[in-house]
Design a protein around this nucleic acid. Structure first.
Length: 616
DNA sequence: CGACTTTGACCTGCGC
DNA sequence: GCGCAGGTCAAAGTCG
């Protein structure tokens, strides 16, 4: 099916055989798929019907292994070419390369200028010796072959030029895509700034009123914005938000992570001293101890977390630092019924502490990832006080090392969830239409009762509750969607299901994050070396407990997400709000505030429910 | 002997 | 300022 593709540039009345001088690129078929929806000046189309495999196979033929020059559909062709094409990765058919002057049409006269010897081919049309002489021919045939060879060379040059054109076109399309993406981001930022300006008095008043009770909401504004605005250019919005948060410094500084975030903006000597800058090894709590005697801690620890203790040595990565700080804030909590002391997630953990949490007779254990030196990922494991069969595992951070397939599931979940959380929080905080809960419904419309998102908790947290069967009333999608697989059957998900879930959810979150956080995905890609995202995009079918292909899962998940009305509606609303302009801004100022307030309240209620589980 | 666990101490943030 | 709670450290102990 990949053979016999023709490429015709109709507007130029010239046909081009692309990739003639290149090794076989991805098939034209895939190439065409790549540009679905993009309107080309030319046309990519099959020519099986129009130009049915004209040339016969000829091992001695020049170039034609890559590019076939043959006449248009009026020519008599040899079907043996089909077999030849099966060996050629690309069969670009230059439909206008009409070697038959009898069939030469007016629009192709431009090509005819260089096709002076085409008439010589007429006699050989449909013959295997049509293009290159086999040496047995007469002088006339030699002459003809030479002419044809010259013609082919000229054509080859032509094709080369057109190949360059195509490349330019491709780069142009890519540039346009990037430009559009950047433009969208710019619009988003502009609108956010406008909204901030329009709602600043109310916002400040709101902050003042809720300062002592809802500090986290304010703080929540800071984090995602900082994360989203990690662009190279200085971000005034971030500064504004941080200035808002500066009045709330105490609250935010309560988290060691915030020391990292706002360390450069604080004037305390300690913060200046500890401000970590290494995004890969930001152990902020270690950093906090830099002013104490523990700064001279043994090398074993200082090596593992050493870079955090020497942040001053590398202050050139504030963006990555912020990214890491922000990413590390986001948490993914998994509740699953398990008799085992810990859910096996494929990673290697070392227990570094245990604490008795108030209100829970079960101790909370602290683990850190030991698969790589300096991996910032940590997790807390604790049994639920109400039901001790429920194991609550909270992940924090992103791996900075390759992961085994078995560990990719949870890692991708944490990373993707963190990304999604932060991007969603950004939108919510800036009074856009997408908010974490909406995102949660968009991501997991089939099980919104299973996955809840808390962005107003001390750390934005997404909780995956595998202890409950999904609420059928909340099932809004066909039951055949992949998301249902791990939870279908109405049986309580097991630890195996808990391990299986992240595989699906993680990818879904990751996919969604690429939608909701345009720059975010770019950031993640840029930081993939330490975020571990390359593994996400790669298949892990071997680790898929269900045996289903990860690619299938990915495709299905993507399709499910994009097909979901919630997601599409949210996406459309977000885009509309972005492109809406001043009119919509004026109209949506109060509306979005109301929405935001409602959202925040919802978040608050959720967070109070969700965030209470580990710490109480 | 190295890796890991245990456990008491320490640090920090937050509420009162 | 004080006490509480969460989080972390690191020495000591344990295990393979």
């Amino acid at each position: 099916m990949d053979k016999g593709w023709g490429l015709t540039l109709r507007d130029s009345d010239q046909s081009i055989g692309f990739f003639s001088n290149k090794p076989p690129p991805p098939t034209v078929n895939s190439f065409q798929r790549m540009f679905q929806g993009i309107e080309f000046s030319g046309k990519l189309g099959r020519t099986d019907d129009d130009n049915p495999a004209p040339l016969p196979s000829d091992e001695n033929r020049l170039v034609v292994n890559e590019v076939d020059f043959f006449s248009d559909k009026k020519r008599v062709v040899d079907d043996t070419r089909e077999d030849q094409d099966s060996k050629s990765s690309i069969n670009i058919i230059a439909t206008a390369v009409n070697k038959d002057d009898k069939n030469l049409t007016a629009p192709r006269t431009g090509f005819n200028l260089v096709n002076t010897g085409l008439h010589l081919l007429t006699a050989n049309t449909g013959s295997d010796q049509s293009t290159v002489s086999d040496g047995i021919s007469s002088d006339g045939e030699d002459k003809r072959a030479k002419n044809e060879l010259a013609q082919l060379q000229v054509e080859l040059q032509r094709i080369n030029a057109e190949n360059h054109k195509l490349r330019d076109m491709l780069s142009h399309v890519s540039n346009n895509y990037n430009t559009l993406q950047m433009h969208l981001l710019t619009l988003m930022q502009q609108q956010q700034q406008q909204q901030n300006q329009a709602t600043e008095p109310a916002h400040e008043r709101e902050i003042g009123e809720r300062k002592s009770t809802e500090k986290h909401e304010v703080g929540r504004v800071v984090v995602p914005r900082q994360f989203m605005d990690l662009g190279p250019s200085g971000n005034t919005a971030e500064t504004d938000e941080l200035s808002h948060s500066s009045s709330d410094e105490r609250t935010r500084s309560g988290s060691p992570l915030n020391n990292a975030e706002t360390g450069s903006k604080k004037s305390t000597g300690r913060d200046h001293e500890i401000a970590p800058s290494d995004h890969e090894n930001s152990n902020f709590r270690d950093g906090k101890r830099s002013s104490t005697a523990r700064e001279e801690s043994p090398e074993s620890e200082s090596h593992a977390w050493g870079p955090n203790k020497a942040p001053r040595l590398n202050s050139s990565k504030p963006l990555d630092q912020s990214t890491e700080a922000t990413m590390r804030k986001a948490r993914v909590s998994v509740r699953a019924r398990s008799e085992a002391p810990m859910i096996s997630d494929g990673c290697q953990w070392r227990k570094y502490g245990q604490k008795m949490a108030k209100g829970n007779p079960c101790p909370r254990a602290y683990y850190r990832c030991t698969m790589a030196v300096g991996c910032p990922v940590r997790k807390q494991v604790q049994r639920c006080a109400e039901d001790r069969t429920i194991l609550i595992t909270t992940y924090e951070g992103n791996h900075n090392h390759p992961l085994p397939p078995a560990a990719m599931a949870m890692a991708s979940t944490t990373t993707a969830a963190a990304s999604m959380l932060l991007s969603g929080s950004m939108s919510s905080a800036d009074h856009n239409l997408m908010n974490p809960n909406l995102l949660a419904r968009a991501i997991l419309p089939c099980s919104s009762s299973m996955a809840t998102i808390s962005a107003s908790a001390p750390f934005p947290t997404i909780t995956l509750d595998l202890t409950h069967t999904p609420n059928p009333l909340q099932f809004q999608r066909p039951a055949a969607t992949p998301f249902h697989v791990p939870f279908a059957g109405g049986q309580p998900p097991s630890a195996a299901a808990a391990a299986q879930l992240p595989q699906v959810l993680g990818q879904a979150l990751y996919n969604q994050s690429k939608f909701s956080g345009l720059q975010l995905s770019h950031e993640m890609g840029a930081n993939s070396s330490h975020l571990g995202h390359p593994q996400i995009a790669q298949p892990a079918a071997a680790s898929q407990p269900g045996g289903a292909s990860f690619a299938d899962t990915l495709s299905a998940a993507t399709a499910a997400i994009t097909a979901d009305p919630n997601f599409t509606a949210a996406l459309a609303a977000a885009i509309s709000s972005i492109i809406g302009g001043a009119h919509s801004n004026n109209n949506t100022t109060t509306t979005t505030n109301t929405t935001s307030t409602t959202t925040n309240n919802n978040n608050g209620s959720n967070s109070s429910k969700i965030s209470s589980f580990p710490g109480n």
